[in-house]
Design a protein around this nucleic acid. Structure first.
Lengths: 194, 194
DNA sequence: CATATAGTGAACAATATGTCCATGAATTCG
DNA sequence: CGAATTCATGGACATATTGTTCACTATATG
C-alpha cells in the first residue's frame, strides 16, 4: 500500500519483504507445489502474522516476486523489422520459460490462477496483457507500413504465436526448443503478410 | 484393477463407483477448486475409506469420470479433406471446452496436473496424446497425398492448431469463438500446403 | 462351510488455514 | 520528551483436510 510514502508510524521493513519474496521463490523452485504461508514465514525468519498482513496467499507472494524480478523481460525494439521483432519476443519468452526460474514459477502461478480468481486477474493484467500488448503493437506497426495484411485478427495471431510456448510449459509433451520461436513465426507468417 | 474379472470375494459396487464419479463432477462444476475427498464421499453417500481404496486423490476421481464421459469425443473422419478434418477436430475441441462440462473439469485437472505428477501423466497419456495423434494422422495423410508439404513439423503444427484453444480456456483473456477453429486453421494453412 | 474381497464408521496424528490478542519496536508529530 | 501510529512478534485458537488404521459387516466364490 504505502511502501513508498513516508507514513506516520514504524516503516515497513524492506529487508523482511525481500526475505519473504526470496524465501517464497526458493521454496517454490524446490517443489512442485505452492509453498505454504507457514513454510515461507519460517524460511524467511518472519512471523506468519506479517505475511498475512501484506499478502492474502502464498500465490500472491510468489507473483509479486516474479513480477519484480522479471518486469523488464519484454522485448520491445521498434528498430527491428516486424517479423524479427515478433520472433525476438516469442524467443525471449521461450528462453524465459525454459532457462530462468520464471518458467517454474509461472507454472505454479497458472495452477493457482485456476482456483484463485484474484491471482488469475493479477497474473493476466500484470504478466500476460503487457506482453500481448507489446506483440500487438508490432502487428499494428506492420499493418501501418503495409507489411501485415490489413484486417488481421491481432488477438488471434498473438495467441497463435505465444500459446504453443505456454502449452509446452504446461503439458510438457514437447520441448521448448531453441528454434521454436522462429518456427512458430514461420508457420504464421505467410497467412498475415500482404 | 479387477473391475472386469470375476474375482473371489465380494464384487465391487458399480453403483457406488457411478455415484462417486458423478458426485465428484457435480462438486467440481459447482466450484473453482477441486472437491475434497471428504466432500465427494459425503455427496456420494459413501465412506471415505472406499474412495481412498480406489483413487489416490480427488483429481484422479475427476479424471476417471472425465475420460469415461468424453472418451468418444475425438473427431476422426478420413473421408473429409485434410483441412476440413483438422478444422473439425479443432472445432470439436473448442465446443467441448466451451459448451460441455469438459472445459471446467479440464481446467481443474490441468491445475492439479502441475502439482501432481500422476495426474499430469494420466491426463497427458489419456487425454492429450490421443487427440494429438489423431491430428497428426491427418497431417501425415495430407503429406502422403501431396497436399501437405513434406518435412512439415507435425508436432509443431498440432500445437499451433490446438494450443490457442487451451490457452484461452486457461487464461480467459479471449473467448472461444465459434469461428476460432476455422480461423486458426486458416492462419496455419498457407505455411504447410504445397 | 471357509475364504476372500468390498464397504462402513470411527478414530487418529499431522498439516494448513485464517484470525485474534497482548506485547514490543520504530518512527513522526506536537 | 511524550503521544500517537504503524509494524512486527509469538502464541493461541477453531476449523478443515489428509491419509492411515482398526474392528466390523456384507457379499461373493469354491
Amino acid at each position: 500500500m504505502n511502501s513508498g510514502s513516508v507514513g506516520r508510524g514504524r516503516p515497513r521493513s524492506v529487508e523482511r519483504r525481500r526475505a519473504i519474496l526470496d524465501a517464497a521463490a526458493e521454496l517454490a523452485l524446490g517443489s512442485q507445489t505452492l509453498p505454504t504461508m507457514d513454510a515461507i514465514a519460517t524460511r524467511a525468519g518472519v512471523s506468519r502474522t506479517t505475511l498475512y498482513k501484506w499478502w492474502p496467499s502464498s500465490a500472491a507472494v510468489l507473483l509479486e516476486g516474479l513480477l519484480e524480478r522479471f518486469h523488464a523481460s519484454i522485448e520491445f525494439d521498434d528498430d527491428l523489422p516486424v517479423r524479427a521483432a515478433l520472433t525476438a519476443q516469442v524467443d525471449a519468452l521461450v528462453h524465459l520459460l525454459r532457462d530462468t526460474p520464471a518458467g517454474r514459477l509461472l507454472r505454479q502461478l497458472m495452477s493457482a490462477s485456476i482456483t484463485d480468481a484474484a491471482t488469475a486477474t493479477a497474473l493476466l493484467d500484470q504478466w500476460m496483457e503487457p506482453r500481448r500488448h507489446a506483440a500487438i503493437h508490432h502487428l499494428e506497426r506492420g499493418m501501418t507500413i503495409g507489411e501485415i495484411r490489413p484486417g488481421t485478427d491481432t488477438a488471434l495471431v498473438v495467441d497463435a504465436l505465444f500459446a504453443p510456448a505456454y502449452h509446452r510449459l504446461i503439458w510438457g509433451h514437447a520441448p521448448l526448443d531453441d528454434d521454436l520461436a522462429e518456427h512458430v513465426c514461420a508457420l504464421v507468417w505467410p497467412a498475415i503478410t500482404t
